[in-house]
Structures are given as C-alpha cells and as structure tokens.
Design a protein around this nucleic acid. Structure first.
Lengths: 251, 251
DNA sequence: AGTTGACCTTGACGTAACGTCAAGATTTAT
DNA sequence: ATAAATCTTGACGTTACGTCAAGGTCAACT
C-alpha cells in the first residue's frame, strides 16, 4: 500500500528531491511519516502527484496548481488564464527573433557576399557565416561546390527557374493575396521544391527542414538585397509569412 | 563630461540598480569613482551601456554580452547561437499551448453546449466558458443574442453559408493543399469574412483580432466536435495552420 | 557483533538579473 | 542649521528544483 519516496518518484517519473519540495510547499505531504522520519506515500498520493506533474508540463506554477487541486480555482479557468500568458510569451519571442535577424543582417550586410552571378541563383547561401554556423560547414560547402560545378547552361537554367519563381512571388504580393491562401501556399510549395534541388541543405525526413525554411523567410525580410528580389519589404514579408505557414503545415 | 548614476540611468532608460549590478559584474565599471564613493560615468560608458541594453532586449544573457563587448566572440556569431535558443523556446511554447488547448477541451467536452441548431452555425462561441473568460462576457452575450434574434430564414441562410465553407475546407484538406498556399489562404479569407459578420467578437482596427482567429483554429483541432466539421483531426489541423498563416500575414 | 551498501533525513548553496527595502553617509537646497 | 535629494554598501526575494554535504537507518553478509 505504501511506497518509499524513491518508489513513487520512479513510478511518476520524477525525483525524490521534487517530492520533498512538494512536501515542504504543502502541495503534496507524505501520506505517512514513520517514526524514523521516512516519508511514505500511498496510491492516492500517487494520483495527486501525477496530476501535479501533468499541470507542470503545461507550464503552470506551483501556486496555480495548488489552487486547482484544492478546488479554489476552476481547472479550465486556470488553464485559460495560463494560455493567455503563454501566447504573450510566444509573441515576445517572435519579436525578439525578428529583431535578432535584422540585427545580424545589419552587422553582416557589407561583408562576405558570394559572386553576383551566384546571388541571382543561390540566394540562400549568400550569408556564408550564417549558413556555416547554423547549419554546419558542410551545408555551405556542398551548396557552394554544387553551384561551382554546374555548366553555364545549367546555371542559366537554374537562374531562369529562380527568376520565374521570384516574379510569381512579386506578382502575388502586389495583388495582396493572402499568405495562407491557396495561391501563396502553392508558391511556397514551389519554393520548397526549388530549395530541395540544392544538395547539402538541412533536411528532416527527406524534406527541407521547417526551421531552415522559416529562417530563410526571415532572412529575405531582414536583408534588403533579398527583399528586392521579392518586391521589397512588403513582398518579402509576404514570402516569409507564406513560407512559415507552409512549413507549419507540411514540413 | 561626467554623469551621476541617476543621470545615465535616465539617459539610457534604465535604473541605478542595474548600473550597480553591471558594475559589480565587471560588465560596465564606472569610468570614475570619486573619493566619497560616488560613481560617475562618461560618454563612452554611456555608449557601452546602450549597447548592453540593446543586446539585453534581444534576450542575450550578461555573460554572452560581456563576451561580445570584450571581443572574445563575434557579435553575429553570438546572435546566431542565441537565435537557435530562441527558436527552440518558441517551439516549446507552441507545444505547451496546444497541450493546454486539448486539455481544456477535454475538461469541458461534455459541459455547456449551445443548442444543436446553434452548433452548426455558430461554432465559435460554443464554449461559453472559454469565450467569456478570454474575450469577455460581452463577446458571448452579443454573439448569443445575435443568433437568437435571427429569423428562421436568416438562420437557414447562415447555416448554408457555414456548411459551404466547411465543405470547401474539407475538400481542400483532402486534396492535400498546402496551408500557406493561395487556395487555402483564400479559404481562410472567406472564413475570416464569415467570422466578421458576427457582432461582438474581439477585433483590432476593425478586423477580427489575430489572436482570436488563431485561438479559433486551435479550438477546431482540440475539440473533436469541431474537427468533425472540417474533416477530422487532419482537416482541422489544416484549417488551423491556414488560419494562423492568414492571421500572421493580414490581420 | 561488525561491516557494507543502499536508502533516508535535514540543511544549505546555486540559479538570472535585477527589484526592493534598510541603514547610514554625503551633497544640495532652503 | 536643517531638510530634502542622492549616494553608498549590504542583503533578502524571485522559480522550482539540482546538487552536494554530513550524518542517521535498515537489511544483508561475514
């Protein structure tokens, strides 16, 4: 009927330190304390512990959890309040991410560019530093050699594809198409397919990695030289949003 | 040439406590300390302080900032490393948000439903508790009375519109359309327009609030009764993603 | 009985970046 | 001369435990 502190800790997937902490906080007192001071917990305590751990995984603090378990607060209400906080945090992070992106771009704006011809066809590895640090030196090197080893005709072909894609993006952006709409999402699909032809980019289960695609979109916005290809700030923002939706949905 | 501690604090938009903290950490020592112990900072210190605060807003920790300012680390490299952390945090939050949503739905699954007829036409306010707590009692009440005051013909009209929209969503989902593509985004546009016809929903500058639209999408996924209208889990996930992209891009 | 582990206890420091008193010294204004 | 500002150092609080540290307790083995 009783379990030692290590026992329930293992049963619930936590540590004895956590159990003692919850005991000290009055959140989960031992169901019995032996004469020698040893803590013992019964099955009801185990159930309570599991509820606590569940709520903790959702991000609730111990005071909020106590209020819920002691029925001082409605659980759903507490979770909805918590949801608001989570969403705010997420937005704050989103803003920080964008600021960091633009800061990086501003810092490196005038450093190592790849050759101009390359710029038009291989825009995603123009930032040598960024590609190497975030996706590994291989990503840059293999993309680089892939491009260099192309024949002139292959390169021209590739540039034509790229130009057409960019033109369609600009067109859609001008027409104020919704970035999560079918048309934009089809463009995003083409964009990812185009990307997929480049060896060495980071992938997940065979497809370009979602984080990479999103990062690419942010880069288009952060760097005016890219933005120009997609119709300026507004157009690049559109591309970024479309890629983000696409990545969320299908990658 | 010199400023007192309060002076630069005001100039830089921070507090004297922070200045002392940075001094104690060796991150920004006072440029001069008078015989009486008073700290004084010159213009170079002000510049350094401003850089520190900028990096802090981007979320960097003090050790990372020190490394950058002391030129032990490349600033862009530090920011890219930081970017990876930010993106991970964002994903963790996203997972928590979804878990909270499904938990809330599971908790309230069988409580207060609106009438069945209402269910088919007014799905976004079916969760009385959720709507009231997160968007205010007015949101629920005005939506509720709007619906109740309709004539039978008006209601039938509305339900037909709703059903058509849902059918198009199911169709697009089945065809594996990309959620950030043009087609899905057009559907999202229709969805928001449809929503916009309901009085009392939360708005921002005249249009349905982005957070509300996103929340709606999450609800479709979290609640099987909604999901059913959009083609089950997969379909609802598609709708959610499409709405999220749409919200990000145009709301 | 003595010893060896395995397990238990309480106690206390560390974490990130300051916010917030508190007590006392100094400068500035009246 | 006195009051009001401003300055100093010192220290606790914040969140949920992780991580020693020093020292009891218990079952098993010699």
């Amino acid at each position: 009927m009783d379990h030692s502190i290590q026992d329930i800790a293992r049963l619930a997937g936590t540590t004895s330190r956590t159990l003692r902490h919850y005991g000290a906080e009055g959140l989960l007192p031992p169901s019995r304390v032996a004469a020698n001071g040893y803590r013992y917990y019964d099955d009801r305590a185990l159930v309570r512990l599991q509820r606590i751990l569940l709520l903790r995984e959702l991000g609730l603090g111990l005071p909020a959890i106590r209020a819920v378990l002691d029925r001082e607060t409605d659980e759903a209400a507490a979770l909805r309040a918590h949801l608001g906080w989570l969403e705010q945090e997420q937005q704050r992070l989103q803003r920080q991410i964008r600021s960091v992106h633009t800061t990086i771009t501003a810092l490196e704006g005038k450093d190592q560019l790849m050759a101009e011809t390359m710029f038009d066809g291989f825009d995603h590895s123009i930032h040598k530093e960024e590609v190497e640090q975030r996706w590994g030196a291989d990503a840059y090197a293999s993309g680089d050699s892939w491009w260099r080893d192309m024949t002139a005709a292959q390169r021209a072909q590739w540039q034509a594809t790229t130009a057409a894609l960019q033109a369609d993006w600009r067109d859609a952006a001008e027409r104020q198409v919704a970035p999560d709409g079918t048309e934009a999402q089809q463009l995003a699909g083409r964009h990812v397919q185009w990307l997929d032809a480049v060896p060495g980019i980071p992938r997940e289960n065979g497809r370009p990695a979602a984080a990479y695609v999103r990062g690419l979109g942010e880069m288009y916005v952060a760097d005016d030289r890219f933005a120009a290809h997609y119709g300026g700030q507004a157009g690049a923002g559109f591309v970024r949003d479309a890629l983000a939706v696409y990545a969320a949905r299908t990658l």
